[in-house]
C-alpha cells in the first residue's frame, strides 16, 4: 500500500477528483504556479492547466464569493484559504451566501464547494497563523465541517467533501501534515511513512461525512477528540496507562452522535479535547450532547481540556497548547471521581 504524508494525501485526493470530474476546479492564493504554501496543490496546474488550478489574488472575500457562484452554476470548486486565520474577510460569504443559498432558494440553488484551510498551532505562528476556528463554522446551519487527523482520512474525507452537494469546510491541522504530532514538541516527530494511517490506497475512495473512528478501544473513559488532539490523546493514554477509548470525530457537522453515546454508555466517563479556546468551543456542544443523552450513565462530570481563553501566544505557544500532560491529568481526574 502506498504511504503518503497528509500533504500528499490531500494532493492525491484533488488529483483523483480533477481526473474524474471536469467540474472540479482548484484555486486559492499561491495555489497554482507555486503549488500552495504547504505544497498541497503542487503539480496540479502543470497536469490540469491554469483554467482548472489557478492562483487567486489575495482577496479572501472574492475567493469564497466566486466559489459560491461557481458552485451554484454547476462547478465543484475547491478553494484554499492559505491559513484558517485569513478566513475572516470571507466569513460573510461563507455564512450569508454559501451556507444559506439552499434554504433561501428552497433547494433551487446550492453551493457545492469545499473550502480547505490549514488550521491549528504548533509552528510558532502567533495569533494570526495558529487559530482553530471550527466552532465558528459548526455554529452556522447549512455548513458541514470536517477535520481529519491523518493521511488516510484526509484523502477519503476530502473526496467525500468534494462529492457532497453542500458547502464543506475542510480544516487541515497543519501540525500533523508531516507526521502524527502528539504534543511532545521537544521530541522528533514520527513520519507518516512509519504510521499505519499513512497508508493511503491509490485511486478513489470516500469516507462518508458523519462517521467517527474509534482510534483506541478502552473501558475506563471516553475521549472525544479531532485533528491534532487525537494524537495527543493517544500519547496521554499511553503515558498514564489509563484505559481510554479514543474517538476521532473526523466530522463535526454532521456529528456521529451514535458512536459517542455508545462509548460513553460503556465507560461512564468523558473527556473532551480541542486546541481552540475553551469558552463556546465545540467541546461545549459535545459536552451538552453527552449530558443530554448519557446523564444517567455518567459517573463523573465531563471534563474539557482545551486551549486557554487567550489569543494564541507566540513565545508561550506550549503553555497554551493542551499537551499530553494536561490531557493525562484530566484522564486521571475523571477516574478519581
Amino acid at each position: 500500500m502506498p504511504r503518503r504524508t497528509m500533504v500528499e494525501a490531500i494532493r492525491d485526493a484533488l488529483d483523483v477528483m480533477m481526473a474524474r470530474d471536469p467540474r472540479v476546479v482548484v484555486f486559492g492564493e499561491d495555489v497554482g504556479y507555486f503549488g500552495g504554501v504547504f505544497r498541497c496543490t503542487e503539480g496540479l496546474q502543470r497536469k490540469y492547466g491554469a483554467s482548472r488550478c489557478f492562483d487567486a489574488p489575495i482577496s479572501e472575500t472574492g475567493i469564497i464569493g466566486v466559489a459560491v457562484g461557481m458552485g451554484a452554476y454547476g462547478l465543484r470548486p475547491v478553494a484554499e484559504i492559505q491559513f484558517a486565520d485569513y478566513m475572516y474577510p470571507g466569513y460573510d460569504q461563507i455564512v450569508s451566501e454559501a451556507a444559506r443559498l439552499r434554504y433561501r432558494s428552497a433547494g433551487e440553488f446550492t453551493a457545492p464547494m469545499v473550502v480547505r484551510m490549514p488550521c491549528g498551532g504548533g509552528i510558532f505562528g502567533g495569533q494570526t497563523h495558529s487559530q482553530s476556528p471550527e466552532a465558528l463554522f459548526t455554529h452556522v446551519a447549512g455548513l458541514k465541517t470536517v477535520i481529519p487527523s491523518n493521511p488516510y482520512d484526509a484523502k477519503g474525507l476530502l473526496i467525500a467533501a468534494i462529492e457532497d452537494d453542500d458547502p464543506v469546510i475542510f480544516l487541515e491541522p497543519k501540525r500533523v501534515y508531516n507526521g502524527p504530532f502528539n504534543g511532545h514538541h521537544d521530541q522528533p516527530i514520527v513520519p507518516w511513512a512509519r504510521h499505519p494511517l499513512g497508508e493511503t490506497p491509490d485511486g478513489h475512495y470516500a469516507i462518508p461525512l458523519g462517521q467517527a473512528a474509534v482510534r483506541r478501544e478502552g473501558a475506563a473513559v471516553t475521549v472525544l477528540a479531532y485533528g491534532t488532539m487525537v494524537h495527543v490523546a493517544e500519547a496521554a493514554a499511553e503515558e498514564t496507562g489509563v484505559d481510554a477509548e479514543i474517538i476521532d470525530l473526523r466530522s463535526l457537522v454532521p456529528l456521529d452522535v451514535e458512536t459517542i453515546v455508545r462509548s460513553v454508555m460503556k465507560t461512564g466517563r468523558c473527556v473532551i479535547l480541542h486546541e481552540a479556546t475553551r469558552t463556546s468551543g465545540f467541546g461545549a456542544e459535545l459536552s451538552a450532547q453527552v449530558q443530554e443523552r448519557c446523564f444517567h450513565h455518567l459517573e463523573a462530570p465531563i471534563l474539557r481540556v482545551t486551549g486557554w481563553d487567550t489569543p494564541y501566544p507566540h513565545a508561550q505557544e506550549w503553555d497554551y497548547f493542551p499537551g499530553p500532560d494536561r490531557v493525562g491529568r484530566a484522564l486521571r481526574a475523571v477516574l478519581e471521581e
Binding site: F124, G126, T128, P311, P313, H314, A315, Q316
Partner: peptide, 16 residues
Amino acid sequence: TGRSGGYSRGKGGSMH
C-alpha cells in the same frame, strides 16, 4: 526571540 524584553513581551513575535 520571544523574550520578555521584546516590544510585545513575547506575545506577538515577528509580525506583531
